[in-house]
Amino acid sequence: MSVNKKILEVKGLNIRFGSAAAAPTVEDLSFDLRAGETLCLVGESGSGKSISALSLLGLLPESAHATADQFMFDGVEIDPKDTKSLKALRGEGVAMIFQDPMSSLNPAFTIGYQMIEAIRLAPNISKQEARQKAIHYLELVRIADAAKRMDGYPHQLSGGMRQRVMIAMALSRNPKVLIADEPTTALDVTIQAQILALIDDIKTELGTAVLFITHDLGVVAETADRVAVMYAGRMVEAGQVAEVFDNPQHAYTVGLMRASPRTAARQRRLNDIPGSVPELRDRPLGCTFAPRCAFMTPACQELGAEKTVQVGTHLSRCIRRDELGTLLGETHV
């Protein structure tokens, strides 16, 4: 796979639950992803990160309605409402690692049985060939005695080892895009670092594009090439990791950075973001984040306050983006 080749392109993604006239849970989301690149979607719980990823695989519940102005995968346009086409992407096109490997692995079957079952979804692969391939991918994710582990059960492995099995299973069909949905949330710090390093190594070795979902800006700083910050179903800032971290241009990004131990090391204390994400039906008229924002002005509450402005690769929906550097200096962040 050619590095820097655009594998995934999504424009104007909207997701609604219930009727098609309901308030959107995800609204006008656009992003792209290239081979060998990691894009992190970051934001609080309820910001729309996971359901955006699930929509790419057709895994949303029946009550969901997903539409997009454009959804391109490896140069081919796909209708996000066409469940058959989305199902065909699973495995060889897009694979997903979920948060909790214990709930993703069936405790009643061996690791080998579950690995082989996934691999044999591809045509013309014998059981013996699938077994050898399963062992290969377990070795790829640094599992010692891989052949022996094939006969073990999920409960016989540690949390970190189970997550490695899930990564091996996801990679076993050679996907072009790997979605990692907070894959280290349930792990301790040491194992978390190992899993993050493993995903990064695999991305480099195989040229796999990675869509990484997290609420932790420290993880973003360690793993991502680009970052997209989501709030209340909308992308409020996006850009290269360095430019977003060095020059945040949305007050919500600033709030997340102030609340993160690893990205706010110079602060005397951590700060929280007051309030909570608004209900979809109660979104403010102007900037959705305005009621929680330390830098809110009357203009932020007016219609049009969330107009998107992009300079180079840096996108922001904050009308005070050009003032944030000065404002942050005044508040000693």
Results as ranks from 00 to 15, higher is better:
12 G>M: 11
18 G>Y: 03
20 A>H: 06
22 A>D: 15
22 A>W: 03
23 A>G: 00
25 T>W: 00
26 V>M: 09
33 L>R: 03
44 E>T: 04
44 E>V: 04
46 G>N: 09
48 G>H: 07
55 S>C: 03
58 G>A: 04
59 L>D: 04
67 T>M: 02
68 A>K: 02
70 Q>T: 12
73 F>N: 07
73 F>I: 06
74 D>Q: 09
79 D>M: 06
82 D>F: 01
94 V>C: 04
98 F>A: 12
101 P>M: 11
102 M>N: 04
104 S>M: 07
104 S>I: 04
108 A>K: 12
110 T>K: 12
129 E>G: 01
131 R>T: 09
133 K>G: 02
136 H>T: 11
142 R>I: 00
145 D>T: 08
146 A>N: 07
148 K>Y: 03
158 S>T: 06
158 S>W: 03
160 G>F: 02
163 Q>S: 08
167 I>E: 08
173 R>Y: 00
176 K>Y: 01
181 D>T: 11
182 E>Q: 13
183 P>L: 13
183 P>N: 10
190 T>R: 05
190 T>L: 13
191 I>F: 03
197 A>H: 13
201 D>P: 05
202 I>Y: 00
209 A>L: 12
214 T>V: 10
214 T>D: 12
217 L>H: 08
219 V>G: 11
223 T>I: 15
228 A>W: 01
239 G>T: 07
244 V>L: 09
246 D>W: 00
246 D>V: 00
254 V>Q: 12
259 A>G: 12
265 A>Y: 03
265 A>F: 08
265 A>D: 04
266 R>A: 13
274 P>D: 07
275 G>K: 14
279 E>N: 13
282 D>A: 15
284 P>N: 08
285 L>V: 15
293 C>Y: 05
295 F>L: 10
299 A>H: 07
300 C>V: 06
301 Q>P: 00
305 A>Q: 11
307 K>D: 08
311 V>G: 03
320 R>C: 02
322 D>E: 15
324 L>V: 05
329 G>N: 14
329 G>F: 01
331 T>K: 14
